[in-house]
Design a protein around this nucleic acid. Structure first.
Length: 360
DNA sequence: CGGTTTTGACCCGCGC
DNA sequence: GCGCGGGTCAAAACCG
């Protein structure tokens, strides 16, 4: 999400009050020279101030620094969240529009009915991700809104669609999460950049989707149980659906040291998938649900703080990292917040009612 | 040369 | 029990 945030129009929330806190690190470089040149002057200047105000001013300055830094972070985070929300909303609107077209033309078997209609209706087994009974947009709605536990969302779908809730087996399945990534439709590779290193071990053409599904294993740690399935959405082939199973038992592999902008492409070690990195912009994360990411971001943040404490030139990068992770966590927290979800659902459902001309 | 991708074959669970 | 379909294996090919 990172580089495109900077390209977003500023919300002008950064008041720029006080000293440029993050610039302090950079300003510290020339400072020692001046300090060495005339350290006394600075002290004397302070002492020339009225004795009454001196501690107040110092305290205020400190407070101002802290506030401005906090303000800056919050502004960044807010910008990120707003941009994400905007992308998500536009994507959702697209899906709703396409789903409306599908549902008005065919009530059942919305996926063009080419393959699904030819087989018997009971030819549906696991209902792992795309069942043919419900409009595909419904799945997207579920995953967009119930990001944290799509498995339970699937359960809910199963129950609401009239079938018995026989999903007990999935209870003890590894954690399943889905990630929707906007990708170039001309790009045939099924690579989703998520910061981890993956090794492809299989590819299959599934029945309900003409696009093949790729199977990946985490190759960063040999014992890592996480698996990933990537497949293009049946309705919108510009969307890659990555399904994660399990949780990583290791930290996120560090980004390539030279190219910091590619930090989320852990699978770029192989030569061919460079096609994905050629995307004009980083893949827009339409709906991200990867619970394990939060921990890793926290860890990254701690590392960044540690790097910041070390000082030097890493301060800028560390601060950037902190802001980035802060924004990530805020977005994650928002998407996890039930009240936020409820508000989002109500807002979007209102939007649906507006978009759909007449249904009842 | 080591790691990754490709791809056909095989395994296994589920519905009938 | 059989067939279908998803998931995995493993050998060959590929790549840096």
């Amino acid at each position: 999400m990172d580089p495109w945030i900077s390209s977003q129009p500023s919300l002008s929330l950064d008041l720029h009050v006080g000293l440029p806190t993050l610039g302090l690190g950079r300003h510290q470089a020339p400072l020692p020279v001046a300090a060495l040149a005339k350290p006394k002057v600075l002290v004397e200047e302070n002492f020339l101030q009225p004795l009454k105000k001196e501690p107040e001013v110092a305290a205020l300055e400190t407070e101002l620094q802290r506030m401005s830094e906090e303000n800056r972070r919050l502004a960044e985070a807010l910008t990120s969240v707003a941009a994400k929300y905007d992308a998500l909303r536009s994507q959702y609107t697209e899906m709703v529009a396409s789903a409306a077209v599908h549902t008005t033309t065919t009530t059942n078997n919305p996926s063009s009915g080419s393959e699904g209609a030819s087989v018997s209706p009971s030819r549906k087994r696991k209902t792992s991700e795309t069942s043919m009974d419900t409009p595909p947009a419904a799945h997207h709605h579920q995953h967009l809104h119930l990001g944290t536990s799509p498995a339970s969302a699937a359960d809910q779908m199963e129950c609401t669609s009239g079938e018995p809730c026989k999903r007990i087996r999935e209870e003890h399945k590894p954690k399943v999460s889905k990630l929707y990534v906007h990708a170039d439709p001309s790009d045939l590779s099924l690579v989703v950049k998520d910061g981890y290193q993956w090794r492809k071990y299989g590819q299959k053409v599934t029945k309900d989707n003409p696009c093949p599904r790729a199977y990946f294993r985490c190759s960063f740690a040999p014992a890592c149980p996480v698996k990933k399935k990537v497949q293009r959405s049946a309705d919108d082939n510009t969307i890659l659906v990555a399904t994660y199973e399990g949780e990583h038992n290791h930290v996120q592999p560090p980004p390539a040291p030279s190219s910091q902008q590619q930090q989320h492409d852990g699978s770029s070690s192989a030569g061919k998938n460079a096609a994905v990195t050629k995307l004009p912009s980083p893949p827009r994360q339409v709906a991200a649900v990867a619970p394990h990411h939060t921990q890793l971001h926290q860890q990254q943040q701690q590392e960044a703080v540690a790097a910041m404490g070390a000082g030097g030139e890493a301060v800028g990068a560390a601060a950037e990292m902190i802001r980035r992770n802060l924004a990530e966590q805020m977005a994650m927290t928002l998407t996890r917040d039930p009240s936020f979800k409820a508000a989002l659902v109500s807002a979007l459902s209102g939007r649906i009612l507006e978009l759909s001309p007449t249904k009842d």
